[in-house]
């Protein structure tokens, strides 16, 4: 029993050190690097939180929600308004944003998670449009369609990176637990899950609430990064962005979501820079084509990936240190084995 407690304390200390290290590295990078790469890294961290949260409900629990942006927007406006109108400090506003999103997740999830498959997708999609319509029409509080300017800037690289670290830690703890296994059981076969005593409705609602909580945090970070909010920022395309990150990385893989978020955050920048580079070299034709038509490459790339590797880059596997070492070992052995 004693050693178990020590194991827990040690893990908490290690995690605290990790968070501290991430904070320090984030702050250093912000000082040292130009604004452009720092911005990309910050956006990556936000996107990763959003992808991870969608992965929990859809990748692990198998409930294909299309209302993710709806939960982001709840978090975004909650945190922004609490700081602006109620003069709350950042941290309580931020956490309240997550909690309110989770509450909304409960209200949406409790009745609709009895639905299966496509029906759930349609209901959650409908929820997202409803919430956008509400925000567009509550002009006094949220500025409505005029948007909400003057949101305080808080989401610096260290803040975003630390939020991502904590999200990843909590979610990886969760999926490696009894509850995590029940989520997967719900995805695998609901009838079989019930037959061994798993309360599928309960686990679906719980997964939905936790997913909404982190979506709310992600949305709040977006507001505090852009310093401006508009209901239409959180449209259907915003949901699909998170969805594509998770599907690219692999449904049901946390590190896959990180990888997917990285690819989808970086890809437009790579094309943009390539276009600028080609333009600088005097190749104006290809440069202009890239600038206007990079989406074609992006879409084609996605199609090819889905045809050749429908389970995503990682599938259900996780990238881990021991796994990485083994892989390196295999590569080395293969090279040595060559005559």
């Amino acid at each position: 029993m004693m050693t178990k407690t020590n194991g827990f304390v040690r893990r908490i200390i290690v995690f605290a050190l990790e968070v501290a290290a991430v904070w320090v590295i984030g702050s250093l990078l912000r000082e040292v690097l130009p604004a452009y790469p720092v911005g990309i890294m910050t956006i990556f961290c936000i996107n990763a939180v959003l992808a991870l949260s969608w992965n929990l409900i859809s990748g692990f629990t198998g409930q294909f929600s299309l209302g993710h942006a709806g939960f982001m927007v709840v978090g975004a406006y909650t945190s922004a308004l609490l700081m602006m109108k109620a003069k709350w400090p950042f941290l309580p506003s931020f956490i309240t944003a997550g909690l309110l999103s989770a509450l909304v997740g409960f209200l949406v999830g409790f009745p609709s998670l009895r639905l299966v498959g496509d029906y759930l997708s349609v209901v959650t999609l409908g929820f997202q449009y409803i919430i956008t319509a509400i925000l567009n029409n509550t002009t006094k509080l949220t500025g409505g369609g005029l948007g909400l300017p003057g949101v305080p800037y808080v989401t610096s690289l260290p803040v975003a990176a630390v939020t991502l670290t904590i999200t990843l830690w909590i979610l990886s703890n969760l999926v490696n637990s009894k509850q995590g296994r029940c989520f997967v059981a719900v995805k695998e076969d609901e009838i079989a899950a019930q037959s061994v005593g798993i309360d599928t409705t309960y686990y679906k609602v719980v997964a939905f609430m936790i997913s909404s909580f982190f979506a709310g945090l992600g949305g709040a970070m977006i507001g505090h990064y852009m310093m401006y909010l508009h209901p239409d920022v959180f449209n259907y395309a915003k949901t699909i962005e998170s969805v594509s990150m998770v599907i690219l990385g692999g449904l049901g893989s946390l590190t896959g979501s990180l990888l997917g978020a990285m690819c989808i955050t970086l890809l437009p920048e790579v094309f943009r820079n390539l276009a600028t580079f080609l333009g600088g070299m005097g190749m104006l034709g290809p440069a202009n084509f890239l600038r206007r038509g990079w989406m074609v490459f992006y879409a084609t790339g996605f199609l090819v990936l889905m045809l050749t590797r429908p389970q995503g880059l990682l599938g259900r596997r996780e990238l881990t240190w021991p796994g990485f070492k083994k892989w390196i070992g295999r590569v080395v052995v293969r090279k040595e084995a060559r005559p």
Binding site: K4, F8, N173, S177, Q179, G180
Partner: peptide, 11 residues
Amino acid sequence: DAFLHTPRFDV
């Protein structure tokens, strides 16, 4: 317990 992997979780 699942979020934090508490000692009880370990046992």
